[in-house]
Design a protein around this nucleic acid. Structure first.
Length: 412
RNA sequence: CGGGGUGUUGUGUAAUGGUAGCGCGCUUGGUUUGGGACCAAGUAGUCAGAGUUCGAGUCUCUGCACCCCGACCA
């Protein structure tokens, strides 16, 4: 894409009201725009990142057997009355139409997915199965904060699994853990993400969170010095030793909860009497698990973990483009190189603007694409282009030739 | 929701109760071109409403918005 055609612009100064690094950088670089507290528009660059993240998640959840669906934001009040959450959930947005009929704006989707399952599930032969979606969640956070990390409206991947018995749920739950680790690894958070024991709610002893360590984190976790698992502060009192390896040595860290998996058991199937016939023709209650990842929060966490004083440093897996082509002298050669690379399928953002080199370098560092490809008089005299690695600053050179440059990136 | 703070142009800021100014951005013209370059001319603003006052960005009240700490966060 030609940068001159990108309708968003970078800005030099951070907004005074944005304190968090993720929002400052994402807004300055033109990835997101703040609409109101906790509500952000995702701009073209940001959407490319979100789509990359979404596709990583989709691949891993599909591999887990999840079937993708799309459920509505507007949900019937009666379902929420049935589970008791119409009155008990403080952060539930309620909307009213002209006739006074009320509905919920979904903060989560158990109240939709369980009745949905009920329509199609008749027999034990239909189980197990799991469905998931990427969908907007609305939660009336009394205090939105930390930039895009805690919003009032945000995109979430929520997966729901249905099982005949606990052994089957457990097996799926363990597989989901592995899938989540893969997702966070692919998103560039492998080194900082810890499986964390958290409070289990009413039916299981623990739930599991995936906590990414960063100073921007809202949660306090205790990482086991021995096995690397962690315990959320909320249950640290009950867990004096590591639930996994029984070691007692922990280090305290701030972390962001980037994912959560939870055994719901019959908490939501019971209110809807979701049951099937077993082999003997008897009614058998179904149990559930749920598994969430906030996409915006994940993007924000990647920024919190991967940035320096100049800007964002995107991991290649989620970068909006792989290459930032900087034409310092407005020459036709850069245009050729851009066309050749784009035709070869390399994701390249071409800074073709009529701007000073300093502006282009500064914007490239802020935007944070993995590679900066510099075409300039200086390099052209040597018949080469310069390729700078955003992450470590390493500089390499390639011949001043589109197809050679394509080769360079294809063999990376 | 409790406590604290802040609202001045697109953005960052200045202005004893007395002419709303500056940097960046943006527009136009020119000079530049390896790290946010320079010159010149432009552009645009006091959150909303009420009150006090000869006079309000400034004081008072109400509302709204945003930020921070806490609580909350299947």
């Amino acid at each position: 894409m030609k940068q001159s055609q990108l309708f968003t612009k970078t800005q030099k100064d951070a907004l005074k009201d944005e304190v968090s690094v993720n929002a400052q950088l994402l807004i300055r670089a033109g990835f997101v725009d703040k609409e109101m507290a906790g509500v952000y528009t995702i701009l073209p660059l940001g959407l490319r990142v979100m789509n990359k993240i979404e596709n990583i998640i989709r691949e891993e959840i599909n591999a887990l057997g999840g079937q993708e669906i799309f459920m509505p934001s507007m949900q019937p009040k009666e379902n929420w009355l049935k589970t008791g959450r119409w009155d008990s959930m403080d952060d539930l947005y309620k909307v009213k139409d002209a006739s006074g009929r009320e509905a919920a704006l979904g903060p989560t989707h158990e109240e939709v997915v369980v009745p949905l399952a009920q329509k199609f599930i008749n027999s034990y032969k239909d189980l197990p199965f799991s469905v998931y979606q990427f969908q907007n969640k609305c939660r009336m956070e009394l205090r939105a904060k930390s930039g895009i990390l805690r919003g009032r409206e945000f995109i979430m991947k929520d997966l729901y699994s249905f099982h005949l018995d606990e052994a089957d749920l457990d097996a799926y739950y363990e597989r989901s853990k592995a899938a989540y680790f893969k997702i966070f690894e692919r998103a560039g958070l492998k080194e900082v993400t810890h499986l964390t024991f958290a409070s289990g709610g009413s039916f299981s002893k623990y739930s599991h969170e995936f906590q990414a360590i960063t100073p921007a984190g809202e949660d306090i976790i205790y990482v086991c010095e021995k096995c690397g698992l962690a315990v959320n502060k909320e249950i640290k009192a009950e867990a004096a030793e590591c639930p996994e390896c029984k070691n007692a040595g922990f280090r305290e860290e701030k972390a962001i909860e980037v994912g959560n998996i939870f055994k719901l058991m019959n908490k939501y199937t019971k209110p809807f009497d979701l049951a099937v016939k077993n082999e003997k023709g008897e009614a058998k209650e179904i149990i559930m698990g749920c598994y969430g990842i906030g996409l915006g929060r994940l993007m924000g966490t990647v920024v919190e973990v991967h940035h320096d004083e100049k800007g964002i440093i995107w991991p290649e897996t989620v970068a909006p483009f792989q290459v930032h082509l900087l034409s310092l002298n407005q020459n036709e050669k850069a245009d050729d190189i851009y066309r050749t690379m784009a035709a070869a399928g390399i994701e390249v953002l071409f800074d073709d603007r009529d701007a000073n080199p300093g502006v282009k370098f500064a914007d490239a560092d802020l935007t944070g694409l993995p590679y900066q490809l510099v075409v300039s008089e200086k390099n052209m005299r040597d018949n080469r282009v310069e390729i700078k690695n955003r992450k470590n600053g390493a500089v390499e050179y390639a011949p001043l030739d589109g197809s050679e440059i394509v080769k360079y990136f294809q063999t990376k």
